[in-house]
Design a protein around this nucleic acid. Structure first.
Lengths: 223, 223
DNA sequence: CTAATTATCTAAAGAATATTAGAATATAGG
DNA sequence: CCTATATTCTAATATTCTTTAGATAATTAG
């Protein structure tokens, strides 16, 4: 079998290989796993729970991602941790999502249920948000689980996981606007946080970006 | 049917929509069609011939791309022309390819048969190539079919399709190095052109970039 | 109108994928 | 060594995707 001799065979091989990556990104559940991994490394059970699927199915999907070389595995005791191979994969996810958003109307209407309503911080003012946070003119809170905050977060952000937020309201500097962010535009945590804060009388807005979007814009992260 | 109420349902819808784009990019043949469309609009028969598939199959794949909103259709007489919806799609293709190249060893070894051997112009020196071409220190030739050159090409490039090259060797300024490019790293045209030129005693090198890669680098194109 | 060209649609076979359940493997702790 | 835990592997089924062939539709030329 002397494969790979004709131009056609060479080309077929090339596109086939790229399609392996495309195929890895062709399943909704796998995309959700990739987005979770953009937040940092997680073990299989965490991933399965967050994505709302069985541990076995999560394992199968992660295997696919591993075959496409998009994720790396690390065993620690009984737990197996997955992580993105590098930031390029996170960027690819962001590009794919943005491309889909810009094109598919159905996606936009579904997204409107998450982002819902106006006065979200448009993604563009990242730098001004950064300088306002630095000057202490507003409080940036990261409402994801602490483990994700610990791996990477926006500069000047403090960790206030959604499920602790209610009890920790007094930690917020009074009379100062709050900006909450979570895993990205598809994540519901920040939306819930903003609703909770609003009910408590706090002036709160949501930043749609998560760490992956932030980094894809070329903005710095803290660790 | 009051779908789309629970958070889980909303999320599923979102990832499903993005997966539609991922799925469109999960087939080798569709990727090849996308790369061809990066060169400009083409009708179905052209696409089928270039990709080495039947007209029917090409039509079916193009339908998939249309459903994912990646391509647009235009009818002109009996011919149906397809084109990329916008440059963002071309950028996505380039990102996907680069991501795959950086990750999959098999792809790199297959690619080495196309790019083969050393002294290719590394992609990075695009700007210096541009200024050398402007000063007339080297001749840049576009060896793709004229129709593709006509839609977009590198600045200072002249059209010298591969199948006319042999007869038109005398058009090349003598004693000046030639740089040939084609549709991108996966395309064989420029490689063949360089081989042909070398046999004719011309100092020729290949530029791996095609117009999509060139534009994705933020460099200007001519029309 | 008819014939020829170009492309899409429909249907069907075969290949590949998603999902689930049960068995197997690796590790930690007793 | 034995047990519990965390995960992967295997096998099976339902679904979806790719590909081909035949029928159909749209357009142009005569």
């Amino acid at each position: 079998m002397d494969a790979m001799t004709t131009p056609r065979q060479i080309k077929d091989t090339l596109y086939q290989q790229v399609a392996r990556v495309g195929k890895a990104l062709s399943s909704p559940k796998r995309l959700e796993l990739v987005e979770l991994l953009c937040q940092g490394e997680m073990h299989v059970e965490q991933l399965a729970t967050e994505a709302g699927i069985s541990l076995k199915l999560a394992s199968a999907h992660l295997k696919e991602l591993r075959l496409a070389q998009l994720v790396a595995v690390r065993r620690e005791g009984r737990k197996v941790f997955y992580s993105l191979v590098d930031d390029q994969v996170a960027d690819l996810w962001v590009s794919l999502r943005v491309c889909a958003e810009n094109r598919l109307l159905e996606l936009r209407s579904a997204l409107s249920e998450v982002v819902s309503h106006p006065h979200e911080l448009s993604a563009l003012n990242g730098k001004s948000l950064l300088s306002q946070a630095r000057r202490g003119e507003l409080t940036v809170i990261d409402v994801r689980p602490v483990s994700e905050y610990a791996q990477a977060h926006l500069p000047y952000a403090r960790s206030m996981p959604l499920d602790e937020l209610r009890q920790r309201l007094d930690e917020l500097p009074p009379e100062r606007p709050v900006v909450a962010y979570c895993r990205g535009p598809f994540c519901l945590l920040a939306k819930d946080a903003v609703a909770l804060l609003a009910r408590a009388g706090v002036n709160a807005t949501r930043l749609e970006d998560g760490v992956a979007e932030w980094r894809a814009r070329g903005l710095p992260l803290a660790h």
